[in-house]
Every structure is written in C-alpha cells, then in structure tokens.
C-alpha cells in the first residue's frame, strides 16, 4: 500500500519494541581495507551453497555482497508483516513460491549463526514467474541458481566478523559486528 503526500505536517512513525531499549543505536566496526572477490554462483546449486562454499574455501566467512542480475530455476521469498504472536514487532511470512525467476538485483550478507554455521541474509528485487516484479527476503536454501552462472561482487570483511546474536530490544536474533573470536 502506498500514498502520495503533498502538503501538511507529518512525522515519521516510531514503534515500541518488545524488549528494553538499547542506548547504542549504531554498532559499527571497520578495517583498514576491503578485500574484493568476483564470485560466480554455479548453476543448479542453492543460493546458500553457491555463496557460502566457494567463499569458505578461500577463508571468507564474513562479507557483504552485491548479486548482479541472473536467472533462478526456482526462488522463494518472504515478506515481513506484523507478528500476530506479539513476540516481536514483525515476523517473516511463510515462504512465497516465485517459481522460475530473474533476480534484478540483490544484496546478501554472509556471517555466522548462533551455532557458528554460515548464515546468509539476502534481500532482492525479482521478476517472478508470472512476470510481475516483487521484492523481499530471499530464502537462500530454497532458491536454485539457473543455467547461467550469476556474478557477485564480494566485499570480504576482515579484522572483525559478523555473528548472529540475540537482540534484547527487538527480541529476535540479528547479525552484528564483533571482534574475531
């Protein structure tokens, strides 16, 4: 839903989250330089495997990536409506089957989940099987690269790592930067 506003006084909406407000609003870390890699996502593999395995093989476990346009044999995505349970402000929907799709542009973050396994967080815009353009949170394990490899620009993060940690304020696990363990 959208509306176009031309005049009058409006203000952006804030939300009250379930947990205690954290005084730290921007958690950032930096390193003296970035390491760049061109990665080709291989046909027939899941987006998760095609991103994680080749990077793992060259020692990259935390990265920010730009996925350039490319075909998927199958793609699933979620949207983020309000959480009916009230445990958090929003919750991901059940996966939506987009069928054979063309990813117009995507960004994916690579980090580690709470158990130390590779985690891919990907948002993208997609031309779905019925021809409409949609966007959302891509399900990387369920989305399968099509017949042509897809180029990805990887900015590997060094000097610190991205780990999923439980966030008290939003009451969900989130990726955050930490000093390397």
């Amino acid at each position: 839903m959208s509306r176009t506003l031309q005049s009058g006084y409006h203000r952006p909406r804030m939300l009250r989250h379930v947990g205690r407000f954290s005084p730290v609003r921007i958690q950032s870390m930096h390193y003296q330089s970035g390491r760049h890699i061109r990665l080709l996502l291989q046909p027939g593999r899941s987006l998760y495997d095609a991103l994680v395995r080749p990077l793992q093989a060259i020692g990259v476990t935390s990265a920010s990536t730009t996925i350039l346009g490319g075909h998927f044999d199958h793609l699933e995505y979620c949207v983020a409506p309000p959480d009916p349970s009230g445990k958090a402000v929003i919750a991901y929907s059940s996966p939506i089957d987009a069928g054979a799709s063309f990813m117009v542009f995507g960004n994916a973050t690579l980090g580690k989940d709470m158990e130390g396994r590779p985690l891919v967080h990907c948002h993208a815009s997609v031309r779905v099987e019925d021809g409409s353009v949609k966007g959302g949170h891509i399900v990387p394990q369920a989305s399968i690269i099509g017949a042509t490899p897809i180029s990805v620009l990887v900015t590997a993060l060094e000097g610190f790592e991205l780990r999923q940690a439980f966030d008290d304020e939003t009451n969900i696990p989130l990726l955050k930067p930490f000093k390397e363990s």
């Binding site: 839903m1 952006p12 983020a80 409506p81 960004n107 994916a108 990907c122 900015t155």
Partner: peptide
C-alpha cells in the same frame, strides 16, 4: 551493500513530493 527493514518508507517523487509506503515492515531490497 545494505539490507534491512523500515517502519514505513518515504521516497521522493519527481514533483518534489514524496510517496509513503506503509509498513511495518517495508523491506529495503
């Protein structure tokens, strides 16, 4: 790189106004 969610999104329009997309959440894709 950047990804995440917004409560509502406000995007500029060509006539100098803006378009508000209502959430929550509106995902930046």
């Amino acid at each position: 790189g950047g990804l995440g969610s917004l409560v509502d999104a406000s995007l500029g329009t060509r006539d100098g106004g803006y378009q508000q997309i209502s959430g929550p959440a509106v995902e930046v894709v």
